[in-house]
């Protein structure tokens, strides 16, 4: 992308701060019930950017949220998918498959 004088526009990463809520087994495995998380992304952020940020911590985060693990998400208390958008101040819940009833 170039602006009117022909020079390349630097891509400005955006920072979105969300509130993460961990539930059930994942709360125990990660040792946290909630936290504020700054997500850096090139484009409008989605759940996948939140997950990538958390995995980037390594250790239990990479292990518990790694590919192939059964992890579910909700954004503002509605079930979400990897491509669900997240915005400033949103509540993003991270939890295992549900086992009620």
């Amino acid at each position: 992308m170039k602006d009117s004088d022909g020079s390349a526009l630097a891509t400005t990463p955006r920072i979105t701060t969300v509130r993460i809520v961990y539930l059930a087994r994942l709360r125990e495995a990660l040792g946290s019930s909630s936290e504020a998380l700054a997500v850096v992304s090139e484009a409008a952020p989605a759940v996948s950017d939140v997950v990538a940020t958390l995995r980037g911590r390594g250790g239990a985060w990479a292990r518990e949220l790694g590919a192939g693990r059964a992890v579910r998400f909700a954004v503002n208390q509605r079930l979400a998918r990897n491509d669900t958008p997240v915005g400033e101040g949103d509540e993003v819940a991270v939890f295992p498959p549900v086992t009620g009833g």
């Binding site: 539930l23 059930a24 087994r25 059964a70 909700a74 079930l79 819940a93 939890f95 295992p96 498959p97 549900v98 086992t99 009620g100 009833g101």
Partner: peptide, 26 residues
Amino acid sequence: LMDFLKTEAPFWKKERTPAGERWVEA
């Protein structure tokens, strides 16, 4: 209602057994 409650409502069960606690798997 029960079928979807089991797969969509955010409840989780943890069992206390003689060998310790364990989360119920879906």
